[in-house]
Design a protein around this nucleic acid. Structure first.
Lengths: 127, 127
DNA sequence: ATGTTAATGCGACTGAGTTGCAAAAATAGA
DNA sequence: TCTATTTTTGCAACTCAGTCGCATTAACAT
């Protein structure tokens, strides 16, 4: 890995993202690490992770920041994460969807990237 | 209009949205009305406008709130604003795009709505 | 083992958005 | 037009996510 030093908090966060199928909100992380790691530390580690291409950041429906581990499609630091995210309106959970969305072409604009947040009911809340 | 009383701030805001082709951020509005109207007043008027179906709210790329006047496709209070928004990476301007985006179907999830923010270079910044 | 450099903790801060309450303005009705 | 009612405003205080500077601590290389 090289650049990032393996502190306790770094390893703990890394493990969390490795295990988790869903995305995780920063607010949630700060809460979970209360007493174990400082708020600033969490924010800074996540920032490093993103620079390393380990996770990608995006905004949930209320403007809060979420992170999820990167798949093959956004490896290598420069994210081509055109993949949409899904937020459940019932439980609030956020997931990465590995479907592709075709972006519209507009002659007058140059479209470079997109943030797509789908909203509805997740698999768990449906059953 | 009925329910909303026509105060000076209401009329001024209404006129602004009527004129403006682009979306307007709340931060910008609060700044523009400094000395003329209170921050809380702006927020509350916008909230009322949205309830009346005059404007729709959405988040820009940094999680801040933007408003734009409603087109025919989101009239009548309950917004079917599946239309994407575009934010220019150069000047920060935000526009509503009246193209339709086809949302993906996912058997396990029930998708009810979507927030689509396209990013790139706007017509003005391109030339 | 030790020196260098990166990471952490802490506290103070910023800035968007919210809220309670009293005062002011808009409407309806006489 | 005057008055009573109800909405809207201003203000100030607050919440909460996210940032920053700085001194201390921990990780790594040699």
């Amino acid at each position: 890995m090289g650049i990032i030093r393996k502190t306790k908090s770094v390893e703990a966060l890394l493990a969390l993202f490795e295990q988790s199928k869903s995305a995780i909100s920063v607010v949630d992380l700060v809460e979970r690490f209360k007493g174990k790691a400082n708020k600033s530390t969490i924010y800074r580690i996540l920032e490093r992770f993103e620079n390393e291409g380990l996770v990608h950041a995006f905004k949930g429906q209320d403007g809060l920041t979420w992170y999820a581990k990167c798949f093959s499609d956004c490896a290598g630091g420069h994210h081509n994460d055109f993949h949409p995210h899904f937020q459940c309106q019932e439980c609030g959970k956020v997931e990465c969807l590995s479907v592709s969305i075709s972006l519209p072409e507009i002659s007058t604009h140059k479209i470079e990237s997109a943030a797509v947040l789908l909203k509805g009911q997740c698999a768990d809340c449906r059953s």
